[in-house]
Every structure is written in structure tokens, then in C-alpha cells.
Design a protein around this nucleic acid. Structure first.
Lengths: 118, 118
DNA sequence: AACCATGTATCGACCTGCTATATATCGAAC
DNA sequence: GTTCGATATATAGCAGGTCGATACATGGTT
């Protein structure tokens, strides 16, 4: 079964993941949590105590905007990317790919020597 | 010119980078710093206040071992991977590639839409 | 002699994710 | 009809890592 990533490994990537799952359409917190879990096959699963403060921080930075909705009786806070957020997503995504390149180059000879045991 | 990565983005990856540059041969702190800077084209450049506490922590966890040497009059503390450290390097490297896969899948449609401007 | 790169080390500040806890609604099972 | 689990948002306090600033010392160059 897929294991959770160490939280320390994801630090600094989580906000990027949030922005990316909001790229297509607005989502509310609980749905964002599910989207991440689904997209990562269960390996990324931020707890509520992690997710909501992060959303508040992103909103404070004007990268996302929120709106309360009450369609079916249950109140939900829908988050969407602002133009600034879309720009930030592009920038951070490119930065992340560059870091991935660097680490990939560092690590490739290492895992090549000893492949993962089944 | 190449820019430094945000420190938050590298959190949780830096110890992995340290282990990887020690994979081939022992190095002392200052040399580790240079190795990372060279391997990353200047994008990864941990400060002394970051590097040395990290090395002490890795040593405390028995992932690396140290030995003072004074060949040319200048005292240097040489660090080398322990067997436990080699194992940890393998494990963390594979974990990192998995995370890279996840984020890659999340981000690929985003950067594909708007490629990096020259 | 002054300066700079080298070399190791510690401290407090800051940021971010965690656990634990709180509140509330909805649908299903009993 | 009420108990329970999933849904849904929120806050407080804690843990851990990177930073800048600072300190000290050596070697080579000018």
C-alpha cells in the first residue's frame, strides 16, 4: 500500500500543490484535501490543521480568493485562483522543475547502482 | 544568471543532498557547500548556519561519521557516509523520486500551457 | 599590515506542518 | 429518534529546519 510522504519532505511544496489543484476550477477545503489524496494515490494527505491555516495564508497573500456558499444546507468556502495566484503558480512550478532537475542529476547515479527491490 | 531556490522549497531535501554528495567520497563542510553549489549551478547554496547544524544532526543520527584532520595546518572535519547513511540515502532517494512523480503529474499540464519565456 | 577566502561553530528569529481540540451539519444504521 | 461516521471549517500550541548575524581562527596575497 502507498505510504505517506514525510512531512518534512513536502515542506514548501504543499502550497504549490494547493495552487495546482485549484488551477482548473474552484474547490472548497475538504475537496482540495481529497483532490490531493487522489492525485497522489494517498501519499499526500494534509490534515485539516495543516490545510486550513495554509489556505488562510494563501488568501492573505492574495493568491487565492474565497466565497461562502450554502447550496444544499451545508456551508462551504469555495477557493479560486486570483490572477496573481495563477502567475505565482507558473513561477513556482518552473522553480520546482528546476529543483527536480538538480536533485535528479544528483540522485540518478545513486539509485541506478541499486534499484528498488520488489 | 542562475537564482537561488527559495529555502522553503528545499526544506526536507537538503539532508538528502548532503548524503548524496558524500556518496562517492568523504568531504569536509566547506567542500560539501561548494559541491552543492557547483552541482546545482549556484542554485543550492546552504549557508554555514544551515549546513553545520545539519551535519551535526546527521552525525547524531549515525548517518554520517566525522574525523578531524590537520594535513596542511588547517584543521578540517571530514564527514563520510556510514552504512546506515548509505541505506538511508537509497530510501530517501526513492521517496524523493516518488514525490517528484506526483508533483510532476500535477504540474505538467500547467507548465505545458504556458512555457517559460526566454 | 591589511585584506580576503577558507573553515567551523552558535544564537535567535521566522516559517511551516503537525497534533489536538472544538464546533456543526448531514445521511445512514439501529 | 438517536447514535454514529463522514463531511466541513477553524484555532492553539508544539516541533523542526533554514536563515541572518555573529564569532573565532588560519593561510595566502598585495
Amino acid at each position: 500500500m502507498s505510504q505517506l510522504f514525510r512531512s518534512e519532505l513536502m515542506r514548501g511544496s504543499l502550497d504549490l500543490m494547493i495552487l495546482s489543484v485549484l488551477a482548473d476550477e474552484p474547490k472548497y477545503g475538504y475537496l482540495i484535501q481529497q483532490s490531493l489524496r487522489d492525485a497522489s494515490e494517498g501519499k499526500v494527505d494534509p490534515k485539516a490543521g495543516t490545510l486550513y491555516p495554509l489556505l488562510h495564508r494563501l488568501e492573505e497573500e492574495r493568491l487565492i480568493a474565497s466565497r461562502w456558499e450554502q447550496e444544499t444546507g451545508r456551508r462551504r468556502k469555495w477557493y479560486s485562483l486570483t490572477p496573481k495566484g495563477k502567475k505565482q503558480l507558473q513561477t513556482q512550478a518552473r522553480e520546482w522543475f528546476q529543483l527536480a532537475d538538480c536533485l535528479g542529476r544528483l540522485l540518478t547515479p545513486i539509485v541506478r547502482v541499486s534499484p528498488e527491490p520488489i
